[in-house]
Amino acid sequence: MMGDLIGGDWIRGITIRQPWATCILAGKNPENRPANWPWRGWVLLHAGKAKPDSTLLRDPLVATAIRGRELHLGAVIGVARLTDCHPDQGSEHCTSPWAHRDVHHLVLNDVHELPLPVPATGALPAWKPTQDLVDRVLQQLPHLRP
């Protein structure tokens, strides 16, 4: 059960550049952001429109995560539950190889990949999706209902 409100009241969109958006679908956690995020709850994982930097694709951690996956652009590719956001507290507190230093860490759980990406326009930092977009996403994830 995702929430008990309709439309974008119970969910937000988060635009993430590639290849990071696809890495989240493959288990990347946390998502690194320059500032604190007060929102907690469900988020649409929106892959931004910018093409990924080719040097990132050769990073061994990234290459392993995205192997065999398409890097969709300008589309919602999944849904996740944002359960925490905290400033970096050093490698002794966050041992994930994905965690960058001196940023905020968005902790994502219950990640669900969409079978078919849903084209959408995102925004920064977090955005409220339209009811139509939420409906199109939930059509593909029938077990996730508000």
Rank of each mutant, 00 (worst) to 15 (best):
M2L: 10
M2G: 02
M2A: 05
D4W: 13
L5P: 00
I6D: 13
G7R: 12
W10C: 04
W10A: 14
W10I: 08
I11A: 04
I14M: 15
T15A: 01
T15L: 01
I16E: 07
W20H: 05
W20P: 04
W20L: 06
T22N: 00
T22R: 03
C23N: 00
A26F: 07
A26I: 08
G27F: 09
K28N: 08
K28R: 14
K28W: 05
N29C: 15
P30H: 12
P30L: 13
P30N: 11
E31S: 07
E31P: 07
N32V: 08
N32Q: 09
R33Y: 01
P34I: 02
A35G: 05
A35R: 15
N36T: 09
W37K: 13
W39D: 10
R40Y: 08
G41W: 09
W42K: 00
V43C: 14
V43A: 06
L44V: 12
L45T: 07
L45P: 02
H46F: 06
A47Y: 10
G48F: 02
K49F: 01
K51P: 04
L56V: 00
L56Y: 11
L56N: 11
L57W: 10
R58W: 04
P60N: 06
L61K: 13
L61P: 06
L61C: 08
A63Y: 06
A63W: 04
T64N: 05
I66S: 02
I66Q: 00
G68E: 03
R69W: 07
H72A: 14
H72E: 11
H72D: 08
L73R: 14
G74R: 06
G74H: 00
I77L: 10
I77A: 06
G78A: 06
V79W: 00
R81V: 00
L82T: 09
T83F: 09
T83V: 15
D84L: 02
C85G: 09
P87Q: 11
P87I: 07
P87F: 10
G90L: 11
G90F: 11
C94Y: 05
C94M: 12
C94T: 15
C94F: 09
T95H: 09
S96N: 10
W98M: 11
W98E: 05
W98Y: 13
H100W: 14
H100V: 06
H104L: 03
H105L: 08
L106H: 13
V107G: 02
L108G: 07
N109R: 15
N109T: 15
H112A: 08
L114Q: 02
L114D: 01
L114K: 00
L116I: 10
P117Y: 09
P117D: 03
V118G: 00
V118S: 02
V118A: 03
P119L: 05
A120V: 05
A120M: 04
G122C: 08
G122Q: 11
A123G: 14
A123Y: 03
L124V: 12
P125C: 03
P125Q: 13
A126D: 09
A126V: 15
P129V: 12
T130Y: 02
T130R: 11
T130W: 05
D132H: 14
D132Q: 15
D132I: 15
V134N: 05
D135R: 15
V137H: 01
L138Q: 07
Q139V: 14
Q140M: 05
H143S: 13
R145N: 11
R145L: 12
R145K: 12
P146H: 08
P146S: 03
